[in-house]
Design a protein around this nucleic acid. Structure first.
Lengths: 202, 202
DNA sequence: TCTCTTGTTATACAACCGTATAACAGGAAA
DNA sequence: TTTCCTGTTATACGGTTGTATAACAAGAGA
């Protein structure tokens, strides 16, 4: 004879507060438990919510993960933009601010990397995630090209932006993975030195 | 009434042929199905072997994954070394060979990337994998420092090796992820141009 | 040819997975 | 105060997970 579980108290969240809470919980779980340890139950527990609720806001766990990618991508983009806007208005200072922000919290962060790795690894198997990846990276490249163009107007910065993105990504990856053989300051200096070599006027 | 399954034919593999087959199957499954789709049964099916056999050769799936990381890491290192040794014996040619090989098969390969992403994402949660990562990257950095030192003896190439590793990693990542906005040749040219700017004699 | 070791199999197990469903209750609207 | 909609819960379901186990058979050694 099984005693029936008394129904837990709850309150009805306004607007899409619950939806955002689930997205946050998804990112946090991806970060702390990895793809392998991320499940509907785990996410909902992190959000303090019953497992069934996920499907009230999302068509399934795949859609939640995709929406989480979009949200986290936007957060990263916003953090970088903020750093650039807070810098001195010279092209040089804005570029350096972009680089510095890339190697400092909240961008260089072990949790963010773990979440990001999960997205990367889904790119191969999930078409929606792949499309999101292309959009996010294209936007990032355009931002960078604009910053470069402000410094040296007229010339084509496509390849420069590509290389700088790759360099920053690689340094960011090692830094966030932990145990990196260099400091955030060295990473910034490295990227700046690279810029100076390629764009003589910096 | 369930008919008993007749026992399948098999042959006893010599030495650790089975062990290597399981490692190959693990890498292939990680590549094709991602972390999420990789399970004991999936790996063993790929190896053409019964599920129970995995635990005869490994203490569990975690140990198999770790051993697979070590094996794949060694393969990558060997492919890069081969490319360098096959090049003209000048320091410049050897460096360029290293770069070119990084952006061509079998190194720049979607399957290899998927496998590698799985390893990266396990670095946070699995201490054994984290240690392996440090070893593999340290060895790679030393290889690169030696190549740089052959070109410009005496000076300290620590930071140069770090930056070149990051640049190559970033370009390799985008290239292997698919839909990259640049070609392998452009990636090689980019890295070479970077080297030329920083090491004047190339 | 026989024996014995052990690589290999089929199957069992409890725990977990993502999703489905019906009962419930919060709280705005009337 | 009552009604009613729906956000939220507990629970159920079939399928899959990693591991455990006992039966079996391959093939070397005697």
């Amino acid at each position: 004879m099984q005693a029936k579980e008394p129904r837990a108290q709850f309150h009805r969240a306004p607007a899409d507060e619950r939806r955002l809470a689930l997205i946050d919980a998804c990112a946090a779980t991806l970060a702390r438990k990895g793809v392998h340890g991320t499940s509907v139950r785990e996410i909902c527990a992190a959000a303090g919510v019953s497992p069934g609720l996920l499907r009230h806001y999302f068509s399934g766990i795949d859609e939640l993960v995709a929406d989480t990618y979009a949200a986290v991508g936007a957060q990263v983009q916003a953090a970088l933009n903020d750093a650039v806007e807070a810098a001195d208005p010279t092209p040089e200072a804005r570029l350096i601010a972009y680089l510095t922000a890339s190697f400092a919290p909240p961008i260089a962060d072990a949790d963010l990397l773990s979440t990001w790795l999960a997205f990367w690894s889904l790119t191969r198997t999930d078409a929606k995630i792949a499309r999101l990846h292309d959009e996010i990276y294209a936007e990032n490249r355009i931002t960078l090209e604009r910053l470069l163009d402000a410094h040296a107007p007229g010339s084509d910065h496509r390849l420069t932006a590509i290389a700088l993105t790759a360099l920053v990504d690689g340094l960011w990856l090692e830094l966030s993975l932990g145990n990196a053989p260099f400091t955030p300051d060295e990473a910034t200096a490295l990227a700046a030195r690279w810029l100076a070599a390629l764009l003589p006027r910096i």
